[in-house]
Design a protein around this nucleic acid. Structure first.
Lengths: 256, 256
DNA sequence: CACCAAAATTGATCTGGGTCAATTTGCTTT
DNA sequence: AAAGCAAATTGACCCAGATCAATTTTGGTG
């Protein structure tokens, strides 16, 4: 449960304990350098020069979350920004009766926590183990203040997400189950390729229920569509993911 | 054109006609002052002080579009930003086979044209007569350059839209037809109230097909749901809009 | 006003994907 | 390796909303 000395390693910074609330997380013993960061060139930090980066690295704290843990909840007051460094998050909203819509999956380099309402407007769970770089609002805002290039970078990320959100609306509102699944597989595959280079097999760290809630389908329909695609020779279902056997076929389905 | 309320009214002056692309638009004879602008306090301009505003007003020009005209198209290269001043736009994306998803309706004060790809990623049509304030990219970018507060304002609008986009994903992916329609009516009503004060009757300048394409339904289902709500006494269908007879009932449907 | 075209409504029928109900598969634990 | 359990798959059936097909209503025009 409690991985090695979570609470003991918090140094003098007492506020940090409160940010994290009751979830089981590990804060990395400090000494982290942004220069070595895996997402150095992907994330918001890509807009910072070496001098700025050295200052920036004192603002954030690396925090680990175990599989299934909630990083933040919809109804929480926003106190931090998060930079996903490692792992995958599911971002979702719940209706009062429990229906869930996953609004996206976050991958390393994604920046979370922007909002107008002072509240997160969605929740974020770790799928598998996750590392985030957490920034308290106040110091982060102060840091941005006289660095418009960082603000511009943040805006760029927001606008890109907005565009993705609109694409997803088209998928949810106007596409068939087959098209939804094919589009998801291709999109996920492309994101992973951009991140870790192309590969024949595509890992799917999220479960079928997550995929269903992302596509506005039921778990049964997702499962049936997977097997259908496999029978058609378009994909092969392997353990923990799929392999794109006939990418052209999948693309044809997704495009239609 | 919309008997219930004048959402977009034709400017009296029929000024110099000019061809932009294939559509006929009117550019207002110049001399417009931002100070008198209807959306002065709503739009991006709200972040500018009087001196800046005087400079700003030379950057943009007012352009009128007749009902049904296209302001810009999905596949167009982006050359301008637009500030909607008067009227309503439908923002939509098309699939190759003609299926359409309306990703939003723009109202006065909305800012359009942000993107990462140098292309608009959706199209915008005028519903009824429309006035926009158009800004060429280059001078606008130069103007922003040393005005971070304007950039911050733009970011704020983008983040708000992102939040709305996520709400709409929930609607598209997880709500029933009844809930969709009720949620739409309430949301539209609230936006109009914020803009021109509360009112018993809610004008619906967009057609049933637009509503259907916004909600991921067919026109028949929208029509049937309207009549069902009317029979239940929740709303009254009046010419060019509806009247919220039993707001609590509609809210209950939308919340569920 | 009569006429026409587009938009909206209504009805009858069909179907894609949901629901319900078993299996089956694949871990993990002992 | 057997037991236990959650995730995934598969099958049988059902229904909300789509599709198809008329009307009806509205708006514009000569």
């Amino acid at each position: 449960m409690h991985p090695v000395g979570a609470l003991g390693l918090m140094r003098g910074r007492s506020a940090l304990g409160r940010w994290i609330g009751a979830s089981v997380v590990t804060i990395e013993p400090n000494g982290h350098l942004c220069n070595d960061c895996a997402v150095r060139d992907l994330a918001v930090c890509s807009s910072l020069d070496p001098a700025e980066l050295r200052e920036f690295e004192h603002l954030g704290r690396r925090v680990h979350f175990a599989a299934g843990k909630t990083v933040f909840s919809e109804e929480d007051m926003t106190t931090s920004f998060y930079n996903l460094v490692d792992g995958v998050l599911r971002l979702y909203k719940l209706l009062p009766d429990g229906r869930r819509q996953i609004v996206g999956f976050a991958l390393p380099g994604d920046f979370l926590g922007m909002n107008t309402s002072r509240r997160h407007n969605f929740s974020a769970d770790a799928i598998g183990a996750v590392t985030v770089c957490q920034f308290a609002h106040a110091p982060f805002d102060r840091f941005i203040e006289d660095r418009p290039h960082l603000l511009r970078r943040i805006n760029e990320l927001a606008v890109r997400e907005l565009s993705q959100a609109r694409d997803h609306m088209v998928l949810l509102g106007r596409r068939s189950a087959d098209e939804k699944v094919a589009t998801f597989l291709l999109g996920w595959c492309r994101r992973l390729s951009a991140l870790k280079g192309p590969s024949g097999t595509v890992p799917l760290p999220m479960g079928r229920q997550d995929i269903a809630d992302y596509l506005g389908l039921t778990i049964e329909t997702v499962s049936r569509t997977f097997t259908k695609l496999e029978r058609q020779g378009a994909i092969e279902i392997i353990h923990g993911g799929i392999s794109l056997r006939d990418p052209a076929r999948v693309e044809a389905l997704a495009a239609a």
